[in-house]
Every structure is written in C-alpha cells, then in structure tokens.
Amino acid sequence: MKNTMKPLARFEKMYASDRHLWRLIIMIITWMIFIAITRFSKFYTVLNFQTMASQFPEFGLMSLGVMLCMITGGIDLSVVGVANFTSILMAFLLLNLTNAAGGLPGYAIPLVFALGILVGAAAGIFNGILVSKFHIPPILATMGSGELFTGLCLALTKGNAVSKFSRDYSHTINNKIASIVPVQLVIFVIMALIIWFLLSRTVFGTKLYMLGTSATAAKFSGLKNDRLLIKTYMMSGICAALGGLIMLANYNSARADYGTVYTLQCVLIVVLGGVNPIGGKGKISGVVLSIILLRMLETGFNRFPSISSYYISLIWGGVLIIVMVMNYFTENSTRFVKRQMQKQ
C-alpha cells in the first residue's frame, strides 16, 4: 500500500508545483496517443517530424521574443513587421550577391545572418526606446512600429514579392544536419537555450522578472529600468529577425504580408505557455511546450483530410480559453486559502 502511495504523492507534488506546465504536457501526450491510435502510420514518420520541425521555428522564434517582452509587463506586436522588414532587406542583399551562375559566394549566408540580426536588434532598440524613454504603452508603441516596419516593407517592394535570388540560401537553411535535424530547428533550439540561460542563470533574467513585477520597486532598488527594457526589446527584435530569415528560406522569397496571422498567434502561444500578461511570471519551458502543442495539433489535423484544416484555429482558441478557465478555478481556490493563511 505504502509503495503505491508514494509515487502518486510525489506526482501530485510535481503537478502542484507547476500545474500549468503539466496541463500542457498532459495535453500533448493525450493528443499524441489519440493520433497514434487513429493515424499512426501517417503521423509517426521521420519525415513528418522533420517537416514540423522546419515549420514551427519561424513563429516559434517570434514567440520567444514576445515572451521576453511580456515578462517585463509589455508586449511586442511588431515581431511580424520586424521579421518581414529583415527578410526583405536581406532578400535585396541576396539578389545583389547572386552571381551569374545563380550561386552565392561563401560569405553570403553568414553575412546575411549577421546583418539580419543587426537589423532586428536596431528595430528592437527602437521599440525599447519608445517604451522606456517616451513611456508609450508597449501595446501601442509596438503596434505603431509594427505598422511602420510593414509600411517600409510595402514602400520598398510596392507590395510585390522579392524573389529570384540564388536558391542556395533556401537550400542551405532547408538542409538537414546529419540528414536528420533540420537547420531551422537548430537555430530555434540555440536561441531557446540562450534565452533559457539568460532567464534562469543570469542576473539579467532575475532583473527582468523583478522589473515585470514592479517597475517602481525596480527603480527604488537601483535597477536600470530603461536599459533593461531596451535590451529586452532588442532581444525580441533579434528573435523576430531570425524568424524572418527562416521565413525567407521557407518561402524562398520575401513579402510585406507574409505571416501576418503570426502576430496574434504569437501572443496566444505565449499566454497559453503560462506567461502572465501583467508581467513578472512565465517560463520558457511553457512557451516551448505551447509551440510544440500548436504544431502537433495542426499537423495532426492535416492527417484527417475529411476535416477542414481551418478547424485548427477553433481548437486553438478553445484550448486557450479552457486553460485560462481552469487556471481561474485552481487559482481562485488556492488564492483564497493563501489569503486566509496570511491573515492568521
């Protein structure tokens, strides 16, 4: 009897330590079992997993940026604008670098990534300055700058796609390392690890959570709020730029209106990942799980040709609301007990 109780109790404790995270894991597992029963052969193939892994990094990276901003109590609605802006500028660069034979010089791709990251960082710094120095509410500042970047994209391209640059770029990014792991996934994992490290192992991370909890208390504790905010939005800009560079490879072209649905989708992913829009709370593990859940659901659905793939958006919104309602009930009960404990 004792032996069976122990692991159960331990699991309960584990579950209670981060209910939100565990709920996401349970959902992913349930969905994977469901797919395994119904569409095993069509879903559980190496190719399928490779395709998923090459698709999600574009919005996955943008979500990581949104997450950072949300931890500070802000939001970044400009990620798609920044991504497209970067990818269009880099597409022009690639056009210029493409030689007569349709190839690229060896330095081209590193150069594109370096410059792309710089563009993203600059765009992010711009957002950060608007938020920190001019005190514009982040939702408005980034909405405006997102519109501005999209506008610049339109002005640069007149709304047309920039393509016809060397296919080498797309081929390289679409490559598989050791013919198994897609390059896009590698980029995403590297970025996710960097951010995980920043948030959980560095001073920057602690300060970020504190700033998100109370900007006033942060100021009175001697934190450099403005600089922290600018750094955060810069990181978000870099994430978005990397997302843009992956989009550039996945579509083999760049256009001002690629990925417009990603703006709200990123916010949705981040919130579902357990990040509190008020700030100060959220883990990268939750956001990564939420990205994986989204991709699994979407790809899984596509294995049922009789069901319109558009249902995915219904399920996605439904899952978000259900998770929030569940949080509401558990939090309300625990919060009540806590408050009374405090009174004692």
């Binding site: 602690t206 504190m210 909890t213 208390a217 942060a218 009175f220 100060g280 709370k281």
Partner: peptide, 14 residues
C-alpha cells in the same frame, strides 16, 4: 520597496 509576488529570496538579493 518590494516585489510582492516574487520570492523573499529575490527581494533580498536584487
């Protein structure tokens, strides 16, 4: 003075 929802530990060392 305080980050109420954050841990006592982080409040001490911030």
């Amino acid at each position: 003075g305080l980050f109420l929802t954050q841990s006592i530990a982080d409040n001490i060392v911030i």
